[in-house]
């Protein structure tokens, strides 16, 4: 099995509700998680808006899917890379993002953070290190 594991990166560059990209990406991630690959998610440009806390869609008649990001740990998706420059450009900081954690079964179910804030240069390195990049 292990030799078949590929590195998949889902690149998210769109805000959550103006287009369907963000929700589609999340659904593909959840379905794709069944294939036991090495999955990472990248959030850059307007994609960082997907992870902000306090989203409330009641009045616009669409589903608020931001809580679903917190379920990703159950699907062994534990690497959410967020680009610092994209946050800065939008007047955001790490404190504006949801707390997203995963439970490490091998460490007595200790909760560990899934979000990792990285620089643009580090994001470029991560992109260059993938077998497959899926863009949304």
């Amino acid at each position: 099995m292990s030799e078949d594991i590929k590195k998949f990166l889902y690149v998210n560059r769109k805000a959550p509700y103006g287009t369907i990209y963000a929700l589609e990406s999340l659904e593909v991630v959840l379905i794709g998680a069944a294939f036991d690959q090495d999955v990472s998610l990248a959030f850059l440009d307007d994609g960082v808006f997907q992870l902000t806390k306090g989203q409330d869609t009641k009045e616009i008649g669409v589903k608020n899917f931001s809580p679903t990001f917190r379920a990703l740990g159950d699907y062994e998706v534990t690497k959410l890379f967020v680009e610092r420059e994209s946050l800065d450009e939008r007047g955001l900081s790490a404190d504006d993002l949801q707390d997203i954690v995963w439970e490490d079964e091998d460490d007595d179910y200790a909760e560990k953070p899934s979000i990792r804030i990285i620089s643009r240069a580090e994001m470029a390195d991560i992109m260059a290190d993938q077998d497959v990049i899926l863009s949304f």
Partner: peptide, 10 residues
């Protein structure tokens, strides 16, 4: 074909 991966910037 000649690159290792393709990344679409949508």
């Amino acid at each position: 074909a000649s690159n290792d991966r393709t990344q679409a910037w949508l």
